[in-house]
Amino acid sequence: MTDDWVSLFSGGKDSSWALYRALEEGLNVSRLLTVHPEGDSYMYHVPETRLARLVAESVGIELVEVEPEDFEAHAAEDSGAQGDAELEPLEAALEALQGELDLVGVTAGAVESEFQTHRIQDMCDRLGIDLFAPLWQEDPRELADAMLDAGFEIKIIQVAAGGLDESWLGRTLDEDALEELEELNDKYGVHILGEGGEFETFVVDGPHMERRIELEYDTEWDGTRGRIRITDARLA
């Protein structure tokens, strides 16, 4: 049997980079696993996760999806308890995959979040599998530059931080945007990679993808935060 890896995947830049690096390292990524939480989440990227289906088709890797009905409501509990509860359907999905794959590990795109990474590591320990987290504790600007140098085309799809106005919605994360984010980091503490939820992204193209994803969308803005709503998405 081959050693199989599962990529914990949202379509955002960080999980996409973890997937890309795993493929570059020669890991046999045989599944993408996307979680679709309903509402805000302590553990998962939330906006536009349904686009992962197009990425899976472009990359050529089978997609497994965890649906909102797999989650139980834990809104009244503290963040730690909710994070643990949110992990349960993901762990159940991986346990099911162990029955059909020679599962040896998962990839994850965490950069600085100990809240997420420690829970994922503990889950891997329980399942007896490895964790490949190539972004962990790396310099955010160096990571962003590496993504652009590799050919990633990254769109900003949600913003929620001081200094990030409606003009950022749908903007490409390029060198100019990174320079502005560094200035906003100095002024407001905005994380250059949006690790604190300041913004969310979606990768529309990259060297691991056979076809670019084209998006059409509307924008929603409430005066302090906003997001894009996809009206059409297709492979070029």
Rank of each mutant, 00 (worst) to 15 (best):
G163M: 12
A161R: 02
A18Y: 10
R229A: 11
V55G: 04
S30Q: 14
Y44D: 08
L173D: 03
G162T: 12
G194T: 07
V66P: 06
Y188E: 15
L94A: 07
D176T: 13
T34N: 08
F199D: 09
H118S: 14
D232Y: 07
D149I: 01
S167D: 14
S79W: 12
G206W: 09
A96N: 11
V55M: 14
L135G: 00
P47Y: 11
V66L: 10
A144L: 13
R126D: 14
P89L: 12
H208N: 07
L193T: 00
T117R: 14
A81Y: 03
E91F: 00
E214D: 14
E65W: 09
E180R: 14
N185V: 01
P134I: 09
E69H: 10
M123Y: 04
T231E: 12
A92W: 03
G196T: 05
A56P: 06
P89Q: 12
D186T: 11
T107I: 10
L131W: 00
L103D: 00
L32H: 03
D232W: 02
H45Q: 15
R227E: 15
E198C: 09
G99L: 04
V46F: 07
C124W: 07
D70S: 15
T117I: 10
T224W: 14
E25Q: 13
L23A: 06
P207T: 09
Y217N: 07
L184K: 12
L97S: 01
F132L: 08
E183Y: 00
L87A: 12
P140Q: 04
A81M: 08
S15F: 05
I213E: 06
G170F: 05
E195N: 06
T2M: 12
E153F: 01
Q116C: 01
R171L: 11
E142K: 13
P47N: 09
E72T: 13
G162K: 13
R211F: 07
T231A: 01
L97A: 04
F132Y: 15
E183D: 13
G226I: 10
A233N: 03
A160C: 01
L94Q: 07
G194S: 10
D205E: 13
G170N: 05
D40Q: 14
L54S: 04
A52D: 10
R171I: 03
S30T: 15
G39C: 05
E65Y: 06
R225M: 13
A85Q: 08
L103H: 04
Q137V: 03
L103Y: 02
R212G: 00
Q158C: 02
D218F: 01
A96E: 15
R234H: 11
V190I: 09
L178Q: 05
D3R: 12
I230N: 05
E214R: 13
V29W: 10
D174P: 08
